[in-house]
């Protein structure tokens, strides 16, 4: 097709996947290819190099699903960021939250968002929710080498599929697990899960669900040094997204702020501190 214009893969590729196309046409832009073989094989060394994002919670409520994340990233015992955002819209109908190596995780989110958009544009129709979850699992699997070297990324994915709210968790080998009711990933997830188990009810409304998520993150921050709690001094609060039949939306910052202030006030009662 000549030396100018579109290079041959642009015209001849038959894949609907951006990641597969990029691996063919421009492998250097993909994150895993850039890093593999460069980073140390000693997981303990690599893990200390880059910031880690921490706790993400997700829960279903009547008519939707919610995902929320704290705002902290750490390198070892140092706080690397107080304002990092770890929950994102994946497309108009689903959301993704990430824990683990922040740089790789943010790039994975960018690639995943593009993957969904690319498929939709090439095929003229969006992927099903299961299809999206499977695609994410495959992308994690291609990252396995780095995960073993200590640069793991652990996402949480949620959306409406088959007319009901659904949550998917993943492991670094590309395992994909559907969760019921609620789930949490990241270093504070053990504490957050405990809170979710006690606070989650089948009939939660959206505002109640936001409250439950903020409580769970509060508990995670209480006991896990890598998870950030509501920062009243700087007015930094969790990021909350919800997905309902009409699509995803970011919960109003002021509502989250008021909820977080309520939770902090409620926890201060009775001199429990």
């Amino acid at each position: 097709m000549g030396s100018t214009g579109f290079p041959p893969p642009f015209l001849t590729s038959t894949t609907s996947s951006f990641a597969e196309f990029a691996a063919q046409a421009a492998p250097h832009v993909l994150p895993a290819r850039r890093l593999e073989g460069i980073v140390s094989a000693d997981a303990a060394v690599t893990a200390g190099l880059a910031p880690h994002g921490t706790t993400i919670v997700a829960l279903t409520y009547s008519g939707g699903v919610l995902m929320a994340g704290d705002r902290r990233a750490t390198v070892g015992h140092t706080i690397a960021s107080r304002t990092i955002e770890k929950v994102f819209p994946a497309d108009s109908q689903s959301v993704i939250g990430i824990a683990g190596t922040a740089g790789l995780a943010l790039e994975l989110v960018r690639l995943f968002q593009l993957e969904l958009e690319h498929y939709e544009k090439i095929e003229g129709t969006p992927l099903s929710l299961e299809g999206k979850a499977n695609r994410l699992a495959a992308m994690l699997r291609s990252n396995l080498g780095l995960a073993i070297q200590g640069l793991a990324v652990v996402p949480l994915f949620a959306g409406i599929g088959d007319a009901r709210p659904r949550i998917f968790s993943f492991d670094v080998t590309g395992g994909r697990y559907e969760e019921v009711e609620h789930h949490s990933v990241g270093s504070g997830s053990g504490f957050a899960r405990g809170a979710l188990k006690k606070l989650w009810r089948p009939d939660l409304g959206r505002t109640d669900a936001i409250r439950v998520a903020v409580e769970a993150l509060y508990d995670a921050a209480d006991d896990d040094s890598a998870t950030g709690g509501p920062d009243l001094g700087r007015q930094i609060f969790p990021v909350v997204y919800t997905v309902e039949a009409a699509g995803q939306s970011r919960a109003d910052d002021d509502l989250v702020r008021r909820t977080a202030l309520d939770v902090v006030a409620a926890r201060a009662e009775g001199g429990r501190a």
Binding site: G2, T4, S13, V29, L111
Partner: peptide, 30 residues
């Protein structure tokens, strides 16, 4: 593919119709 690759390699604001038009023109002329 051209637009998505360019937007991913640089930034979404760096994708322009002019660049895409040039690629189409070169391909069709070729």
């Amino acid at each position: 593919r051209y637009a998505d690759l360019r937007g991913y390699s640089y930034d979404r604001t760096d994708v322009s119709a002019r660049g895409l038009t040039n690629a189409y023109a070169q391909t069709l002329a070729g």
